[in-house]
């Protein structure tokens, strides 16, 4: 790889090792999870739109979609959607803080990373406990 040094001269630099050589770290794992959760949520919008369109098409359609949401598969998908949404939300807030220049020290981004893991777990469990309690 040819690059420029700070005085503008061309120098040869080593290539960084391939991604698979690295041991997974909290920073790298959370980074790719933000992308995966975003794509999963994009797929989840299909269900939201089906739910609304079924509602607009009348009671029979709506009962079908509500019925599916109540099955084991439906509940598992909805739980996955809850986790993806809370993860993407908290991780997104971490991204927005970085965009403002905050939290770039090693100790800070390690701590904020674990904070995202903990808040995601807590919020997802809490939402489902409340959901089952009020049913």
């Amino acid at each position: 790889m040819v690059g420029r040094s700070s005085d503008g001269k061309l120098v040869r630099r080593p290539l960084s090792p391939h991604l698979q050589v690295y041991k997974p770290q909290i920073t790298t794992v959370l980074s790719i999870l933000h992308r995966i959760s975003g794509v999963a949520l994009a797929a989840g919008t299909l269900f939201l739109v089906c739910w609304l369109a079924a509602g607009a098409s009348g009671p029979a359609w709506f009962e079908t979609v509500q019925g599916f949401a109540g099955t084991i598969l439906g509940q598992l998908l909805l739980f996955g959607w809850t986790v993806a949404l809370f993860y993407h939300l908290f991780s997104g807030l971490r991204h927005l803080a970085w965009d403002m220049g905050l939290g770039f020290e090693k100790a800070q981004y390690t701590a904020s990373g674990w904070a995202v893991v903990i808040t995601t777990t807590a919020a997802s469990l809490l939402a489902w406990i409340i959901g089952y309690a009020v049913r």
Binding site: G55, P59, T82, G92, D99, R135
Partner: peptide, 30 residues
């Protein structure tokens, strides 16, 4: 970024609404 910021409160409200509407009848939805 702008849509992300807007989505923070909207999403929290949406999760609350889903909890309210879970298992709702068609009449309740309307």
């Amino acid at each position: 970024r702008l849509t992300a910021v807007a989505l923070v409160p909207l999403t929290l409200w949406f999760i609350y609404s889903v909890l309210v509407l879970q298992g709702a009848t068609h009449a309740a939805l309307i």
